[in-house]
Design a protein around this nucleic acid. Sequence first.
RNA 1: UGGGGUAUCGCCAAGUGGUAAGGCAACUGGUUUUGGUCCAGUCAUUCGGGGGUUCGAGUCCCUCUACCCCAUCCA
Length: 752
Amino acid sequence: MSKKDFLRKIVEDDLKSHKYKEIVTRFPPEPNGFPHIGHAKSISLNFSIAQEYNGRCNLRMDDTNPLTENEKYVEALKDAVKWLGFEWSGDVKYTSDYFDKLYEYAIELIKMEKAYVDSLNEEEIKEYRGTVTTPGKRSKYAKRSIDENLELFERMKNGEFEEGEHILRAKIDMTSPNMKMRDPLLYRIIKKAPHYRTGNKWAIYPMYDFAHPLSDYIEGVTHSFCTLEFENNREVYNWLIDTLGLKPPRPYQYEFARLNMNYTVMSKRKLLELVEGGYVNGWDDPRMPTIAGYKRRGYTPEAILNFCNQIGVAKANSVVDVAQLEFAIRDDLNKKVPRVMAVLNPLKVTIANYDGYEEIEASYYPPDVPKSGSRKLPFSKEIYIDRDDFNLNPPKGYYRLTPNQPVRLKFAYIITFKEAIKDKNGNIKEIIVEYHKNSKSGQDRSGIKVKSAIQWVEAKSAKEIEVRLYDRLFVKENPQGVEDLNPNSLQIIKNSLVEKSVIESSEVRFQFEREGYFFKDPQEYSTAKPIFNKIVSLKDSWSKKQTQKNIPKETKPQKIKQDNNKSGEMAQLSEEERIVFEKLKSEYNLNNQLSNILSRDTKLLEFFHSAIKDGSNPITVANIVTNEVAKELKQNSNPIFTPLDISKIADMIDKEIISTKIAKTLFEEIAKSGKDPINIVKEKGLEQISDPDIIEPIIEEVIAKNSANLEKFRAGNKKLIGFFVGEVLKATKGKANPKIVNQLVESKLHED
RNA sequence: UGGGGUAUCGCCAAGUGGUAAGGCAACUGGUUUUGGUCCAGUCAUUCGGGGGUUCGAGUCCCUCUACCCCAUCCA
């Protein structure tokens, strides 16, 4: 983690400020589906952060909906976390373990008159909620007494009512602009399905907005990371913890963008559709973006984790290119895995002038992989090569065997084409070649130059294998559903050949030279019937070039430069604002934008007027008010600085006592401390230095220290003036008059 | 449409007023008995658009635009 993402920064700050003794995170999936690569991001995030900051991370099954959840998914979730190499703190947690505590909290809420039993039906609730633009209205049942609510709620729990008859809601605000705050549902009745863990004990179940914050609190979670779509729920989260008056330390929720990848779908619903519709062979089909799928395909946990680190964590909705994932797995396997020879589409080759048998020592790893190990390769008159490695009418740039281009058999001899034997349909079924006796690998004295070395297997000893080649599941970058499925996402070749050492080896992952990385299928592989999954192909600039030639380039829609050239756009003014606007312009000579901003904001306008009372320059004041004050007011509506402070700062700027740069930091300080600006300037000696005699030596020093940048500047990088000015300012702790510095630097840089 | 978010290279993503990081992809060239790896190099005068403030703006202010989320008794 070289660069810290925003979540890690939050954690660091909280630790630094001693907000928490120890941080606790959690990965809280609902056990209603198989975890996918998006979960891997969340797992990696929560567990890694806990690890890095010496905290703990819980694995919690958020199992509050008995209709969709089951044990099978719990196991898949646990497997995924374990496989990725993480350990959860203590036992696996379940929200269902907190049902009793949660019930107590609900009663407390009722007693505080912050929750009530509502008896509206579903449609009514929907209707009463209003819409995003219109406020809702509260149910008449909200007026029920505490005792009545308590009684009803208990009877709900006891199963005395049917589903939908009653519901427990928080009493918040039916007119809130945030829909989630319009009296959110807390508990609902479910009787038709038993909970996979609590069975029929409960007739009521807590809803997410109620259960989640409280479960976090119960577990002592400090940082509750979730995805962007829960941003609106954060207000409910905080409301619950605040109104219950829960003692600190309490958890806070932070949101990050969920992972999306092109050419795949990530939603549980769509994944379920693929499985249930039989479009794939189960949740662990190697084409699925599920963790089980990647595992079965042959991905390593390290590759997935590296991928997660590479893509980072941020708040922008984004779609990661699958190429990034493919890079991660290639990069990992390249360092780890033995190279062997396999022939996917065998073409028989008879070496006419070879009659013996020999065994050739061959290393499992190329020189650039720091691992050792080798095996003996049988070699005889009859071998197989890949059909792609021979061509009677080769395209331009073809490096492999052709009638007039010899090729090396990797680790063995150079061969030259003699004759092609065709079947009655004209298809080549075998070729005859001749080998060059003194061209053996390592002791080549033939002098023959060859363009490439190809893989091969000896005919008698080679083992037949089945290979399953996977292509992306969808043909579209942003697939909507099964209609975008790639019909060729799975290609099975049953009669591929591999050197026998592969079958004898205990290794499970191999690089089939010049083809890709392959994995012994963990379910179906056996020595008698070897089955290999292709994990990922090798980067292949040759075949890419070939396909690019054939497929005309998809003309990507060009990014259109926005052209809404409404110059210097400012908000429309009302009649009264217009009058103020004109007055500001004529009376104080303010420009359109300053006048516009002030005339629309009464608070700023008030600030402005009081600040110029004592004769400060209106333009300077207006600039400070519309920029600095407006910024501060955005974050804090009750500032502790006064208009008088602003007027003092403005005076100092006008008298050139301080620079505008200092004025900025000065303002920030009084906004925080409320101190008198003139005093601060005196105390800290912030008066600006304008005397060239003082500044010049500093400039010279800076230039002397940065000769490389001086070169760059002289070579034409004029922006570097900012760098030099910045350095000089740094050297004077910001006190040098930047205007003067700028002029002096400019002339200095052009000297000599 | 009210509210909450987000916009920096083809794709991710750093950057909190002073030289636009890094990875993927792409493209050169070198090494190579894998058209792989590795190595060297190229790839944002510009940060969604327009203004304003400043000696200096991706960063502060105003404004416009685009996209995402919220009206499940799902999570």
